[in-house]
Amino acid sequence: MIALLLRDLRLAVRAGGGFGLGLVFFLIVTVLVPFGVGPEGALLAQIAPGILWVAALLACLLSLDRIFALDYEDGTIDLLATSPLPLEGVAAMKGLAHWLTTGLPLTLVAPGLAVLLNMPAGAYSWLLLTLLIGTPALSFIGTFGAALTVGVKRGGLLLSLLVLPLYMPTLLFGAEALRRGAEGADNTVPLLMLAGITLGTIGLLPFVAAQVLRINLR
């Protein structure tokens, strides 16, 4: 299974465009916001937590349809399904690979973009922490969504429609934890909820995704 993870990471690096695209998208969305709402620092600082979380979520969404679609087209999924690897493990590794190539880099560059939105310096650690805790949930929910739409030609838009409502609790708790943290308020509960969602999705959704893949293969 480690082989699968390494292969996916290697492919992500070699494919060039795909890897950096999410990051660039994150940057662009963040840059667009001041153009839309005006350059006033106080306002930007106030909405920065929400903007950064929404932008990270959209950047994550962008690369979801690649999780299974390519492997489905070239028959890799068929061969993996007949290999000794359990399909549940395959789904989990796919989610992990997606997080390592999307969620983690997004988290790491987020403080840089927070500067652009005039976020108070004390909030950076909360930004890193909430994204670090929350983005794995985005990848694993996305893996489930990608498994659902793997058999649909040009399923990208459908995938977004299915996955976005599933993202809502993660987004709400993540942004709420960050906002409260940035204001110096107590954010234990949303932070724990966020961690709970992440653990729940990592623990359960690979099993559902594997079942969905089996249904799509037959």
């Binding site: 699968l4 494919a15 028959g75 061969l79 290999s83």
Partner: peptide
């Protein structure tokens, strides 16, 4: 099982492709 679609990755070398399946 072997089908029309070979499960090959265009970006990997011939050796890497085989090594992947050997590891799997």
């Amino acid at each position: 099982y072997g089908a029309h679609a070979d499960g090959l990755k265009a970006m990997l070398t011939v050796r890497e492709n085989l090594a992947f399946w050997a590891r799997v």
